[in-house]
Nucleic acid binder design. Sequence first.
DNA 1: CTGAAAGCGCTTACAG
DNA 2: CTGAAAGCGCTTACAG
Lengths: 351, 351
Amino acid sequence: MRSEDIAKLAGVSRSTVSRVINNYPNVPEATRAKVLEVIERHHYEPNSFARALAGKRTDTIGLFAISMNEKENARRIYQNSYFAPIVDLVVDTANARGFYVLIHTVYSRNDFQKVKQAFQQKRIDGGILVGTQKDIELVREMVGQGAPLVLIDYDIAEITAERLDKHHLAIINSNDYEGTVEAMEYLIGLGHRHIGIIQGRMNTYSGRERYMAYEDTLRKHDLPIVKSSILQGDFLKEQAYAAVMDLLDSGVELPTALFSSNDDMAISAMEAFAERGISVPDDLSIIGFDDVQLASRVHPKLTSVSLPIEEMSKAAVDLIIRICSGEQTGFSTLSFPTRLVTRDSCRPLAP
Amino acid sequence: MRSEDIAKLAGVSRSTVSRVINNYPNVPEATRAKVLEVIERHHYEPNSFARALAGKRTDTIGLFAISMNEKENARRIYQNSYFAPIVDLVVDTANARGFYVLIHTVYSRNDFQKVKQAFQQKRIDGGILVGTQKDIELVREMVGQGAPLVLIDYDIAEITAERLDKHHLAIINSNDYEGTVEAMEYLIGLGHRHIGIIQGRMNTYSGRERYMAYEDTLRKHDLPIVKSSILQGDFLKEQAYAAVMDLLDSGVELPTALFSSNDDMAISAMEAFAERGISVPDDLSIIGFDDVQLASRVHPKLTSVSLPIEEMSKAAVDLIIRICSGEQTGFSTLSFPTRLVTRDSCRPLAP
DNA sequence: CTGAAAGCGCTTACAG
DNA sequence: CTGAAAGCGCTTACAG
């Protein structure tokens, strides 16, 4: 069933059918009703490809999770506690707005080509890029090609460094720096002076922000930055676990508190400590970041910095839709506040 | 840049360009090389819509999670411990095979229309339907329309009941019945005689299978089916939690062991018991189903029936791709074995 | 207000 | 082996 068939049945031309489908104003109510009735009766659906070919939007947005160089573990992305809720919310929000979402994961440069192709082949109107790790050049290249894009967790300065036409672009972040400061101040307020960190991936915006805030807050209070208490976790549980074990094996003095750049690592660290008979929070306080679902279900319940993932994801969808429709023009930036959620994994330093 | 531009630059016609793009045999190597070189040099990508319009495949598959009548909680699907790994694996596998995946969640009949439209509008070559709850009529309707489809967790009998042309169809299941029997036998082997159940959603294939196996195994051993120990959980944590609390409040005799139709509910139940000072496994043994990530991280670690989600998801992708390409014709069915993973939440009944 | 026609960018018989 | 032409199913100036 094509628009031509509908036209015949309704006694009008394809042009008119198209006009009612696209809700053009210059169609008399009677004509519109007749056409609509025929469409309804035959469950007619315009072919989306033909529409797109003729210049209409595709009504689908892309969602791309960037996680380059980690081919080893293929199931990490969607079970990644940070990313899973984002796909959840993005899909739901987009669906509710009448959009489909096209998903592709990016583990390699080759996968990245598929993302660019999705744009070049006009499969999507616009895309959302979530960077758990990324190659900034590739992103710049896409921006340069004028692809409507919303970036989550990207460094604004890095993107804007180059002279690019950025009117199709928006960046969404959380205030990770401030969130980390709040977490650190909380720990310091509890009397801790030797505070360690499990670092995130430093080629990531949030990884860097969280680390900088950690150092800055320590400095501000004239507290020591102890090299042996800076653990490399790369945002990965396994790596955090190993780093904690190494720390314990090394025999150096332990910090009394640990700031972890995300919850996944914090939770692994707690498991490592538990295995070695070190009690959290009695022997050591620990604080996470992201406030993932699991945080409140582990024992002890993890104190964490909560991200407004829901608002961020919805904002991403709304932004990309508005950019695609032309309602939103000009580069824009949105930053969301974090919130410290106090639970059971921290306690005042015993005198 | 269109195929015509490439044609000009390569000194051939669009037909020939198309032939090399589609890897037709009747193109001399020299011509092919020349065209390919031009394509390469200009990063040309054929417009996917034009290709699709002209009769080619779209190289995208749909992934649809059916969860009707639960509009209340919009973030349930992708954080659903059962569904999250499926989207994970499906996306990864499809991407690796060169396919995009289009995702849509189905909460309402209206959403279901979008799924049908995705087929009618030719947005996808075929689709995978994962039913956590479903309306069988709608599925039958789609099958009737000849949509290439792989169904996960559907009752074969229900689908095949009607005289449908099913050559575009495949169904993938796990052996939930056998898995439940194994779990129940394990509990019985530990000496338990009063065994309760937290039921899943009974309009779901796996919900029914798991319940039937529960009853059948009890009967087989001449053990009592105690009405008050049959809790309605509907696969939802909140509901399971409430059901356990009601059970405790009612003051009736507690079972000594509980089979939970999924892990999410088992874990909530453990939380409820913990709050009331009932120790798992000392006072009560509990066993789950699905073996989700969380199962091994809660305390005590949950004994559970593991599903080969990875194999199932990969098989679903491979099947749908083969159905779309015409390699696989005729209705097919795949059933995957489960495996009991023994951990710390069950113990022998004290004499 | 509305239809005929051109165009979107491909593929595929068809003819040579 | 290869090109001209028709066709896929829409939309949108254009003319009336």
